[in-house]
Amino acid sequence: MKIIKLLSILVAAVLATSACGGSSGELTIQDAWVRPARAGENGAAYFVITNGTTADDTLLSITSEIASATEVHMSMGDANGVMSMQMQESVTLTARDKVEFKPGGLHVMFVNLTRDLKVGDTIPLVLNFENAGSLTIDVPVKAP
């Protein structure tokens, strides 16, 4: 009987931890990186936003000091292999879900970089969310 009791406590403990494991209860930004580029060109940044909260949130804008403008775009391919980019006014972040910014998909576009982005540099980026407010992240420049 003692063993069964002990086991049930153990099972309960494991269940409790795994239930919490899925979300931190916060909105987090991970795996961020910027593609190397030169001043005067356009650049791109990528990351994964996890909305661990129980409410939907919206990415309203992104600001940086390294370009004339910082925009969010989506690269999309059609059935004929034609790729185009569409500017996104905002990005919806569903509660307890994540949105991946990745090459060939959703990405941050730096228009007219004011400086070179070299591998090893770190770029501060400010992401402005409707609920989570402004989050600043330091993003490394990496070769893909």
């Binding site: 403008a69 925009e71 292999g81 790729m83 569409q86 500017m87 007219n112």
Partner: peptide
């Protein structure tokens, strides 16, 4: 190869849709 200028509303001016093969 399909090539078309696309008015995007981006500060970058026009973008270009193009075959990416």
């Amino acid at each position: 190869v399909f090539v078309e200028k696309q008015d995007s509303g981006s500060a970058a001016g026009y973008l270009v849709s193009h075959t990416s093969s």
